[in-house]
Amino acid sequence: MDPRRVDLPVPGTGERLGVIRHGHYGRPVLVFPSEAGRAEDFESNGMVEAVRGLVDGGRVSFFCVDSLDAWSWSDRSVSIEERARRHATYEQWLDRVVIPFIHEETRGPHELITLGVSMGAYHAVHYAFQRADVAPLALGLSGNYDVGTWHAWGERGDATYFANPTDYVAGLHGDHLDWLRSRLSVLLVCGRGAWETHPTGALPSSIRFAELLADKQITHQLDLWGEDVAHDWPWWQRQLAHHLPRFC
C-alpha cells in the first residue's frame, strides 16, 4: 500500500492536520514527529526503511501525524499555561478524529503503540498515560518529559500540571494508579552522546522519569545507549529497529 496523506479537521478550529499511513496490516503504531514536525518526517528520515521488513511483512502499520507544536509548546511568546491549554486542542483532535480514523482503517479497535522521537517522545508517552485504554504501550526515543524545562515562563496552573508527565505521575495514587499499573508499559530510550543532555535535556529527563515510574511501580524499561549515541535520526533508526520487533 502506497502511503497517502489524509488531512483531518481539528475540532473547534478551521484547521486540518495530516495523517499518513505506512503498511497494510499489523499492529497499529501512532507516530508523533519531532518538534513542530509533520507526518512526512518519519519516512523522509529513514524510520520506515529501518523496519521495512516489519512493514512489508504485515507486522506493523504506522499512522504518522502532524504536530501542532508551532502553535502550542514551541510558541515561546505565550506563557507555559497558555501553551498547555493550546495543547489540549491537539489532544482533542487525537481523541475525536485520529483514533476513530485509525480504527476505521484497521477495522478495529486494536491496541495501539505510541511512538515518538525528541518532543514526539513526550507526545507518545503523555498520550499513552491519557489513553492507556487504547494505547497501552509507549516508546519514547530521546524525550524530555518535563514541560517546565521547555523555556517555560509564567505561572503554572492546572493545564500545565495535567500536560506534564513529570508532575502528574508523581501525584498518581489510588484506583487510577492501580489501573495504570495493570495496563500501561513505557519504554524510554536515550543516548549519552551529543545533544542528549544539552540543549535537549533528554538524558537527565529520561533518567528522572524512569525513577518516577519505578517509584509508582508502573511497568517500564530504561535503555541508555553509549556516549557516541547522539540526539539524531540515524541513531533513532537503530533504536527503533532494535526494539520494535518484539512488540509486533
Rank of each mutant, 00 (worst) to 15 (best):
G108Q: 01
G46E: 03
V147H: 07
R76S: 10
G108L: 00
L187C: 02
E49S: 13
H151D: 15
A84D: 05
L187E: 05
D69I: 01
S34I: 02
L180W: 04
L115E: 01
L180F: 05
L224T: 13
A84Y: 04
G148A: 03
I218C: 05
G157C: 08
V97C: 04
H22C: 00
A121G: 07
H87T: 13
K216V: 11
Y145F: 14
D215I: 15
V169W: 02
T200R: 08
D95T: 13
H151W: 15
A210Q: 12
E104I: 01
G226E: 13
A230T: 09
D7M: 12
E104P: 04
V147Q: 11
Y25I: 01
A163F: 01
T89M: 10
R86P: 01
A163K: 09
V189D: 13
T166D: 05
D2V: 12
G191H: 06
I113P: 01
R107W: 09
L177I: 04
Q92E: 15
A84V: 03
M1I: 10
E82F: 08
R38M: 11
C64G: 00
L224W: 09
A152Q: 05
W195V: 13
P3D: 06
N164K: 05
G58Y: 02
D133L: 11
G120K: 03
S72T: 15
D232S: 13
G108M: 00
R16C: 13
R107H: 12
E91H: 09
D228H: 04
G37R: 06
V19R: 01
M119T: 14
A138T: 09
D66A: 05
Q217S: 15
L8P: 04
I80L: 07
E105H: 03
D133S: 13
Q217K: 13
F42S: 00
A214R: 15
C64H: 04
D232A: 12
R83Q: 05
T160E: 11
D158H: 09
V78D: 11
T219G: 14
I113D: 06
H220R: 08
R96L: 15
G18T: 06
N144I: 12
H243G: 02
L184M: 07
C64N: 03
V134C: 08
V186I: 12
A88Q: 14
P199A: 08
L180Q: 05
S205P: 02
V186R: 01
H176K: 11
L115R: 11
E81P: 02
H173N: 14
G37K: 04
F42C: 03
F42T: 00
T89D: 14
S79V: 06
Q217M: 14
G26N: 06
L240M: 10
A132L: 08
T149M: 11
R85P: 01
F247L: 14
W225T: 12
V29C: 03
E196W: 09
E49F: 15
D146L: 06
V97M: 12
G58A: 09
G116S: 08
H173E: 15
